[in-house]
Write a protein that binds this DNA or RNA. Structure first.
Lengths: 229, 229
DNA sequence: AATATACAAATTGGATACAAATACTCACCC
DNA sequence: GGGTGAGTATTTGTATCCAATTTGTATATT
């Protein structure tokens, strides 16, 4: 039996991973309470490692602690969506460029692996798997760029993006996913070829697609047009 | 006496602030051990709030925990300096542009306050105060932009920058600080005028100055030229 | 009836106690 | 004399315990 001997120190990581997955899935909705006692019961550990995991989530911006009260899943505030899209666009461009300049064989392998998962998820119409593999694909591009400042910011953006898109994933029922699969393939090709200018332009184009998506699907919810640019 | 009744919840913040200041000053050198027991004695609190503060420092990238061993101040690795400068340059430009577009009166007030401190520190040749007020000045510009994704990244960059420059602050004995004072004033003027294109260009120019500084003062230490761009 | 106040219950923040893993010491062996 | 190993000591990781703050409820007062 390869029953992991529950190694010391692995507790907070397990709890963190589980909660993070639930938050990104929107299994835990924005605003949902994260009760320390409940969680310690659920994971069979004391409150100490639970608190450590919660503090990491807070550092990621995925949770927020209300002083002397409980911790909650961070809300998605729509007024910051334009800021979000601005930063996302910039990071698509920058990471695309850097990846073209610095990609190594193992980076391309990671990108292809994530892209294969993405294509499979699209074929299966599995929205959650789509969002997750899409996130991993773009994260692989950022990692290929090798700049941890960009990688860390981009991960935060992609995390928030998973939650935003999960709200509106109905849009993925349309023809767009196939379009994204093709675009991803094109990005891999350009990055492999090392064409930095084209990779940056592609990143901008890809971002524009997503901006358009969100405009179409969020604006109606808000009841008014989102002021973008 | 306005003796703050030591309010519950303020412990970790105090410890975090004190340690962060020491790390940015380089009073705590990179690689220095952060012993939980020592710190709890020093601050007169138990290990619990100390650990919380350390975890926040780790999340900031200022400290690193070695599993089952102690936490240390994160090392400054010179091989990532080019990445650092790349991201810093981009953030100078982006935050300059955004600040010009979205500045409010209170933002300009904060910028001017930090700039006054910076000028005073330059006049007094106080290197630490220079670095700190310089950091606060640029952070005020980022805050004026209002995009928390950029603000958070920029704060990390400015933190790392304080440590890097502290290593080589002899360069500030030269004529350059006065140059920086003038440039900062020019940035305030352009941001107040709302000229986004010029503000972005200024940011890039300012970054170029710093890149040049670091090249001149770090390259000799490394024994070879740093490959930049 | 509505509001304010006092009381009670629940939950977080912090302290202490305990267990596991690592580092250090010193002796012993080659 | 140097290296290896057992045993000890120190330090982190986890559990439990206590206190302080807040929320909700019930009662009393206007």
């Amino acid at each position: 039996m390869t029953n992991d001997p529950p190694r010391r120190g692995g507790g907070p990581q397990k709890i963190y991973d589980a909660l993070k997955a639930d938050i990104l899935n929107m299994s835990l909705a924005p605003g949902a309470a994260l009760d320390e006692t409940d969680l310690s019961a659920r994971f069979g550990m004391s409150r100490t490692p639970v608190r450590e995991a919660l503090q990491k989530l807070v550092a990621d911006g995925l949770a927020t602690t209300l002083p002397n009260r409980n911790t909650v899943v961070t809300a998605l505030d729509f007024e910051s969506v334009p800021h979000y899209l601005d930063a996302l666009t910039l990071m698509y461009r920058v990471t695309g460029r850097l990846a073209a300049l610095r990609r190594k064989p193992e980076d391309l392998a990671r990108m292809r692996a994530a892209q294969a998962e993405f294509a499979a998820a699209v074929a299966a119409s599995d929205a959650i798997a789509m969002l997750e593999s899409n996130r991993n694909f773009h994260l692989a591009i950022a990692q290929a760029g090798g700049n941890r400042y960009y990688t860390d910011l981009f991960e935060r953006l992609l995390n928030d993006g998973m939650r935003l898109l999960r709200l509106y994933y109905r849009s993925y029922q349309d023809s767009l996913p196939q379009e994204f699969v093709r675009e991803h393939d094109a990005m891999i090709a350009v990055i492999e070829a090392g064409d930095a200018d084209t990779a940056e332009r592609q990143g901008g184009d890809h971002a524009r697609q997503i901006v358009g998506q969100l405009q179409r699907f969020i604006a109606p919810v808000l009841g008014a047009a989102v002021p973008l640019e």
